[in-house]
């Protein structure tokens, strides 16, 4: 039984695309068949973060409009072929995406994949509401920062109102993924703590991704962070989050980057 998950936040720049790529890759690394879909029409970036930008031929809108078959538009990851990407259109008007088109593509993907992960655009407009429309579960990506937490609260309200499941009176399971967390700053009272964010948003925690240089390094190289440096703090946080999505009971930790002797002696490496 396939699961459709939307990765959403309201606010931009909090790590939706990074998290979509990393969780999709992590689930595939655990043997699952995964497709990640970019819903950001006109501003696609999931292809770039996953290192597939030069392999895009057809896109999501080409498929919904019947220009290309779904199998032609799907890009299989070169490192792991259980992982596929459906890129957004970079050229079309964002109104070219229709609810019927999205529904038919998601229905088809449900048949061949275990996980369909929808990378939502920022905002609460059409692209964002279409990305969440057919979701079974939602991952709300939040930074420990006031504007991000406020927008997450807003998005949670919209998930409870505008999804097909909500309209049928069913539940969209919601998970909170806190990213760019700096435990030392939180301990010094400079940053909202995990407890603060959980208390305010009352949503179960899926994982805590630490602030880390490894995230930029991975996107520079076009690899999900779980591929690029599987031992880094963020990668381990995403692996744990992926296992929780699969229903495993994993102790909640804030994994830190491990520095080897070389790293300790010579400091930062160039990405």
């Amino acid at each position: 039984m396939a699961k459709v998950i939307v990765v959403t936040s309201g606010k931009g720049g909090v790590g939706k695309t990074t998290s979509t790529a990393a969780l999709g890759a992590a689930l595939a690394q655990f043997g699952q068949n995964v497709v990640v879909i970019d819903f950001d029409v006109g501003l696609r970036n999931l292809d770039l973060v996953m290192g597939a930008e030069r392999r895009v031929v057809y896109d999501f809108i080409n498929v919904t409009q019947g220009v290309a078959k779904l199998s032609q538009a799907l890009i299989r990851d070169k490192r792991l072929d259980r992982l596929a990407l459906l890129p957004a259109s970079q050229t079309r008007d964002k109104d070219a995406l229709t609810e019927e088109g999205v529904q038919s593509v998601i229905t088809a993907l449900r048949k061949t994949f275990d996980w369909v992960i929808c990378d939502s655009p920022a905002g609460i407009e059409r692209g964002a509401t279409l990305a969440m429309r057919f979701a079974d579960e939602a991952i709300i990506v939040t930074n420990p920062e006031v504007s991000s937490v406020r927008d997450s609260d807003r998005i949670i309200g919209i998930l409870d109102a505008k999804t097909v499941r909500a309209e049928r009176g069913e539940r969209v399971a919601k998970h909170l993924l806190v990213t760019r967390y700096d435990q030392a700053r939180a301990a010094r009272g400079e940053m909202l703590t995990i407890e603060d964010v959980l208390e305010i948003l009352s949503t179960p925690l899926l994982g805590i991704v630490p602030e880390s240089q490894e995230v930029l390094r991975a996107s520079n190289l076009g690899a999900p962070v779980t591929f690029n440096n599987a031992n880094s703090g963020p990668a381990r946080a995403y692996f744990d989050a992926a296992r929780r999505l699969m229903g495993e009971d994993v102790e909640m930790t804030i994994p830190a980057d491990k520095q080897g002797l070389f790293g300790k002696l010579f400091g930062r490496r160039a990405a």
Binding site: V146, R150, R188, G189, E190, L192, T193, D196, E199, I200
Partner: peptide, 23 residues
């Protein structure tokens, strides 16, 4: 100056209580 997080938390709690009641 260092402890700004408690202020952030209080501001959010007040704001969101208001915004949720508005919904």
């Amino acid at each position: 100056r260092r402890s700004s997080a408690p202020i952030a938390r209080d501001r959010l709690q007040i704001l969101l209580a208001y915004e949720r009641s508005g919904r």
